[in-house]
Design a protein around this nucleic acid. Structure first.
Lengths: 145, 145
DNA sequence: GATGAAACCTAACCTTT
DNA sequence: AAAGGTTAGGTTTCATC
């Protein structure tokens, strides 16, 4: 991971379909050298995948909530991860400092489907209760990792 | 936007570098038909961009927090957006129901840089106070929209 | 959907450090 | 050995029909 790799990642972030030649021109390498580095970055899982950013309305996932999760006793992060990974509406989650054990960001089609996803979260073992804040209007949405 | 377009989007989400021929094989279209559709999806801003998913540790943004934002009086969402968009550490934010006015997801290098970013949020006009929950361990991180 | 020229990807081989 | 350049082939893209 040197500055050339960072340059490649930076370029691919802006345009994942860029040609190796184009990238090489920017950072000062030949196309094949760039390809070798990209292949290595993918093999090393530095680059996790090539994807597209899509207009959110296409998914019809217009309803969002930030949910605080309160557990009974101590719950292992791995167990929480296992539970939450089975709920597709969970976009983002982490254990946190403060009175809640975790914060879960959920995205769903509408309020009823959000509610049923929330029930799945609440029905998990050791989950005591949740506190939800429904998103009224999205302010920032930056595409990061 | 018919089912073929959805198929194309689905395929490109999994692999943004897929060839038009490969995509066409899956959905039953010729390579040129796929290219025309992809070009149109990009022109119509349904596809917003082609990008990569990168190992988060590469960015060195290891510290995260969910911050509740409490404002004085009423604050227009547009004003909040203007303020928050100037703070690069803000990954994600939305106005919400409940006692807080907004929830802001921040990502930063370390605790000191998170703190200074938080100060920028708090120093914004009409922001009364904030309540932060620092992320201890990331549980889920799904690449959506 | 098909065609053909231009661009690109890819792997093998060579050079340099 | 490790990393970049060069070349040649096969494939893909892209404009046109």
């Amino acid at each position: 991971m040197d500055s050339l790799d960072y340059g490649i990642i930076e370029h691919l972030r802006r345009n994942a379909r860029a040609g190796y030649g184009d990238i090489g021109e920017e950072i000062g390498l030949s196309a094949s050298a760039v390809k070798r580095r990209v292949d290595k970055l993918v093999a090393d899982r530095v680059i996790r995948g090539f994807t597209i950013q899509v207009d959110p309305t296409v998914d019809g996932l217009a309803t969002e909530a930030y949910v605080e999760l309160f557990c009974r006793g101590t719950v292992a992060p791995d167990e929480l991860r296992r539970i939450l990974s089975g709920i597709p509406e969970v976009v983002d989650a982490g254990t946190v400092t403060g009175s809640a054990d975790a914060i879960v960001h959920m995205r769903s089609r509408d309020i009823p489907s959000l509610e049923s996803a929330l029930e799945k979260v609440r029905d998990a073992p050791n989950v005591d209760h949740t506190r939800s804040a429904i998103v009224l209007s999205r302010l920032i949405s930056r595409q990061k990792h």
